[in-house]
């Protein structure tokens, strides 16, 4: 009881909501990437790797190119490289997706450590080199409103990009010609092919789009609130983004909702830690929420299938009755 009574005031504070916005930014972007991938039925788990490589290349890029724009572009290119590599091997060379995903993620994880050591002689982080971060945006009028002010202004530019990205993803998937193609390829590749859509090419385009979103998500890790790269700094955020898109069945607006849910559980975990709950248990929370979420949507899908079957049976019964009459 005492924990709860101490937790409640922490939750209903502007600070809490502020951290939710911060934590949710990469999750939202990654969820959008995964939503587009899911719509095209590209079941990849490499968003984790894309984010990590983008975080690495973006941070070191700003330092080598000596400009923010250069770093952003290098980071995005790195993420795109992973997306294209995955697409080439999975779609054109017929490599088993889960396996390729694990290999690519592990490759990036070790490759970044390797290159970090080769380039700056440290294995843990890049805090010794100068780097640039995304600017912080202050919106003039809103920052004077008490609670909303602390939540919605003074965030990194990426946070606003993340909010816009939800609408962009929604527009791409549901309102554009490309989105129609992507969805048709995802639902039924044979039918799409019969209509003259190049299935492989469409999947690659979807992957490129996901790669861009995941790239920005990765750059947020090392170029926004934190200005350096640490090894394995993405630590499962890519997987949580995938889980969010799985729960949302690939719909971007719902993806946003689930990403926010995970962010809330992550911040809650941090708060619980401050209340002297063992940090290991507190940090389990987002992962447990993910598993429960997977179970709920999974069994909902099962039920849908069952009811779908039942409806067909009912129809058959009705037809039989008509015949017997």
């Amino acid at each position: 009881m005492s924990i709860i009574s101490r937790l409640l005031p922490l939750i209903f504070s502007a600070n809490f909501l502020n951290s939710v916005v911060r934590v949710s930014t990469p999750l939202i972007l990654c969820a959008m990437a995964a939503c587009i991938g899911k719509q095209a039925n590209v079941q990849t788990i490499t968003y984790e790797g894309m984010m990590l490589l983008a975080a690495f290349a973006g941070n070191l890029g700003t330092s080598y190119a000596k400009s923010l724009a250069g770093g952003i572009i290098i980071g995005l290119l790195a993420s795109l490289a992973i997306a294209l590599f995955y697409g080439f091997f999975n779609i054109y060379l017929d490599t088993y997706d889960t396996l390729l995903g694990i290999a690519v993620n592990n490759f990036v994880s070790f490759f970044t450590i390797f290159m970090l050591f080769v380039l700056i002689g440290r294995k843990s982080d890049s805090s010794t080199i100068p780097s640039f971060t995304y600017p912080i945006v202050n919106i003039p009028l809103i920052n004077k409103i008490p609670i909303i002010g602390t939540i919605f202004t003074g965030q990194s530019l990426v946070t606003y990009i993340a909010i816009i990205s939800v609408f962009v993803a929604h527009f791409i998937v549901y309102k554009s010609r490309l989105g129609l193609r992507i969805r048709s390829v995802g639902r039924s590749p044979e039918a799409a092919e019969s209509l003259g859509i190049d299935v492989k090419k469409t999947k690659m385009i979807a992957l490129v789009l996901s790669g861009l979103f995941a790239g920005i998500a990765g750059e947020y890790m090392s170029m926004a609130n934190v200005s350096f790269f640490t090894k394995n700094m993405v630590s499962g955020r890519g997987f949580i983004g995938i889980a969010a898109s799985n729960l949302a069945l690939g719909r971007p607006l719902f993806g946003l909702l689930y990403a926010l849910m995970f962010a809330v559980s992550q911040v809650l975990a941090n708060q619980l830690q401050m209340l002297q709950l063992q940090y290991q248990f507190a940090n389990m929370l987002p992962y447990i929420v993910t598993i429960i979420g997977l179970c709920i949507t999974g069994s909902a899908e099962l039920r849908k299938e069952k009811f779908g079957g039942k409806a067909k049976d009912d129809k058959k019964k009705a037809e039989k009755e008509v015949k017997t009459e």
Partner: peptide, 9 residues
């Protein structure tokens, strides 16, 4: 039991 995606879970 719940049709939860085994890779992610």
């Amino acid at each position: 039991k719940f049709n939860a995606n085994i890779v992610v879970s």
